[in-house]
């Protein structure tokens, strides 16, 4: 029984069957990659996991509880953190403030009226945020405004913000899309390090095979909204069905 269990999920947009009978099981403390050609339904599936979309039928269970019908912030409080395709961070705030917000969210829940104390005198939160900045190798950027940072740094900060919440499951939506090779390799190294050092399950949607094969313990291939195969990386590479899905009919 995995930490995330997707069973019989269907999602239809008008005449388009975006997801057809998707079953997926993500085991605890593994990196599970979901790959597939454009339009395979990877992003739709992800949006069904985080509360942005509600599947027409089927169930999504996380840690023994259904996530369906819950708001994104409620699902996050259950222990799922999401990293977006383009880094979503608080652009008007400093790096330190960006890092403090998830820690406040972890401690105080979805809403707390905390209007008179000074935020910098919250010792526990400040220390936790500073430690995470050191872990992410960003301590020197502490007081920088995030709008002026490079894409790689933004991605690093976003991942750090998600980790600061100590989630059970980290969802990554094409974390290296649009990145230069050097930034891609940095991100791979960072994710490898996270995988080794923390008790965390990672589900990753990715286009870049280099990223997938350097990280994944298990791979699901989606094609036209349906899972084609689920297997270990070495078996995926040689699978004729996968080749067909990516390259079309073989001659």
């Amino acid at each position: 029984m995995g930490i995330l269990e997707v069973k019989g999920v269907n999602k239809r947009f008008g005449g388009l069957q975006a997801l057809g009978d998707v079953n997926l099981s993500v085991r605890e403390n593994t990196v599970h990659a979901i790959i597939g050609p454009n339009g395979a339904g990877k992003s739709t599936l992800l949006n069904c996991l985080v509360g942005k979309l509600i599947p027409d039928t089927g169930s999504v269970m996380f840690d023994g509880q259904s996530v369906l019908g819950r708001q994104p912030h409620e699902i996050n409080q259950m222990g799922i953190s999401r990293v977006f395709q383009t880094p979503e961070i608080f652009g008007d705030l400093t790096v330190m403030e960006n890092m403090m917000i998830p820690i406040f969210a972890k401690r105080d829940g979805a809403f707390r009226m905390h209007a008179v104390g000074n935020m910098m005198s919250e010792k526990g939160i400040v220390e936790a945020a500073e430690k995470m900045l050191v872990d992410m190798n960003m301590a020197d950027k502490r007081d920088m405004h995030t709008a002026s940072m490079s894409r790689g740094d933004k991605r690093r900060l976003e991942i750090g913000m998600c980790l600061a919440q100590e989630p059970k499951l980290l969802l990554l939506d094409e974390p290296t899309a649009g990145m230069a090779r050097a930034d891609t390799n940095n991100t791979i190294d960072l994710l490898k390090q996270i995988k080794e050092e923390r008790d965390i399950t990672i589900a990753i949607i990715e286009h870049d095979m280099h990223v997938v094969f350097s990280l994944a313990d298990r791979i699901t291939v989606l094609a036209q909204g349906t899972p084609l195969v689920e297997d270990d990386p070495q078996n995926i590479k040689g699978n004729p069905k996968v080749r067909e899905a990516y390259l079309g009919e073989t001659a």
Binding site: V50, Q71, P72, H73, N76, Q77, S81, R82, F84, E88, I89, F90, G91, I101, P102, A105, K106, G109, A110, F111, M161, Q165
Partner: peptide
């Protein structure tokens, strides 16, 4: 960024 806020559990 309200999107990030929601996906940070707030």
């Amino acid at each position: 960024n309200q999107q990030r806020m929601r996906y940070t559990g707030l």
